[in-house]
Simulated assay, not measured.
Amino acid sequence: MHSEENVSTVVQFVLLGFSDLPNLQGFLFGVFSIIYIVVLIGNSLIVIITRLDPALHKPMYFFLAHFSILEICYVSVTLPRMLVSLWTQDRSISLLGCATQLCFFLVLGATECFLLAVMSYDRYVAICNPLHYPLVCLQLVAASWITGIPVQAGQTLQVFSLPFCASNVINHFFCDIRPVLKLACGETFTNELMIFVAAVMFVSAPFLLILVSYSKIISTVLKLPSATSRAKAFSTCSSHLTVVLLFFGSAIITYFRPEASHSAETDKVLSLFYTIVTPTFNPIIYSLRNKDVILHIFSELAFFSICNKISSGVYF
């Protein structure tokens, strides 16, 4: 039990981030700035392309557009704040700011898990039950965005209702739930239990649904008569499966490995994968593995090239 003098009213936290690399602050700012620009431009292009091209008005691209919007929101929860810290070396964040960041991070993380599961179900229906395609897209997307809000908002409120000890230093680059909880005083067993329950609900359950969907997809595809049909079916799933492995792989290792094996530096590296790497590679993976998107990009580039030549008088 902590004595009263060991407990202070914390009004702000300090995010250590990558302060252990003092000589690389400018370099890291440049790298993460480029990454943020790539995330914004790449995912915005996917949203614009899937909306403009009538050929891409299909459930798969509807989900992809929402997933790209989600990735922009998800990375914007953590990366701009980290860039400010790297540029100004001011690593402080208010109690309310930390709680807000944690809440949005948890809610959007849950949304990503559900949306990836919905996208795998979409591929399952398209390949295994094509007569029932298209899906009820709007309801599935709405459920993905909304389902995690009450639980994750409640979990955030529960964490920040705890008193905090004298230390206000968070050894992370954003307000993640475990590093914040380490600073809390008193009994945190209930909070740890809630983290586990939420991880099962929002990580394990969607991942299990994805595994079931892909097991049925693989079983169906292997029964297709021609190698061309099998290759085409697998190619429609490969980009989604790559993103799933990147996101869920790092998230499962982070939240389900034993507490004794946790280290701040390892958690930071793993967090980079599901908070920054996946949103960065999402447009690249889906573009390179999807012929429809590639064709649209090249057709748009060709169109703009011709328009520029006409406007400059090349064809006159």
Rank of each mutant, 00 (worst) to 15 (best):
F207N: 05
S68R: 05
V169T: 15
F164C: 07
F281C: 07
P179F: 00
R257V: 09
F160K: 04
K309I: 04
N23Y: 10
S219I: 05
C113W: 01
I285W: 04
P150H: 10
S235L: 11
N290Y: 04
T111W: 07
N6H: 14
Q155R: 15
G186N: 08
V141E: 00
A153M: 14
A126D: 07
C128P: 06
S263P: 02
S305R: 12
Q89T: 11
A55Y: 05
F105V: 00
I41S: 03
L86H: 11
H66Y: 09
G186C: 12
E71C: 12
C73I: 05
A117M: 00
L288F: 15
V14T: 12
Q12F: 13
T254A: 06
G249F: 05
F196W: 14
F174P: 06
Y61N: 03
T228D: 13
A199C: 14
S299P: 06
D292R: 08
R289Y: 10
S8A: 12
G17I: 00
F29E: 02
Y274W: 13
L209K: 06
F202P: 03
F29D: 06
F273D: 07
H57Q: 14
T111I: 06
P22F: 08
S85Y: 01
A142Q: 13
V125H: 06
M194N: 13
V243W: 04
I284H: 06
P150S: 09
A233F: 05
Q89R: 14
L211M: 10
S3D: 15
Y121S: 07
F105L: 04
N129D: 10
H240V: 02
M201V: 13
T88I: 08
S167T: 14
F273R: 01
N191H: 14
L208K: 09
S19I: 08
S19K: 10
F273W: 12
L241D: 03
E265Y: 12
L28N: 04
P283N: 02
M82Q: 13
I170N: 02
V39P: 01
P80H: 09
I177N: 00
N129P: 00
Y36D: 06
S120I: 03
A110W: 01
I297R: 03
P134T: 07
L15I: 03
A184I: 06
V38Q: 01
F316G: 01
H66G: 01
P80F: 09
F248P: 01
N290M: 08
V31I: 15
T242Q: 13
V244H: 02
V293W: 03
L56A: 04
L52V: 11
T220D: 03
Y61K: 01
C137P: 05
K58T: 12
A231P: 02
I195A: 12
T9L: 09
R257T: 09
E5D: 15
P22V: 10
V203A: 00
K182T: 09
A126R: 07
V141P: 07
N308M: 13
Q89I: 10
V203L: 07
S85K: 11
T228H: 14
V10E: 02
S92W: 11
V107C: 13
F18I: 11
S215K: 02
I93Y: 00
T280R: 03
C185Q: 05
D53P: 05
V125W: 04
F248A: 00
I210F: 03
I69N: 02
V10C: 06
I276S: 05
N129I: 03
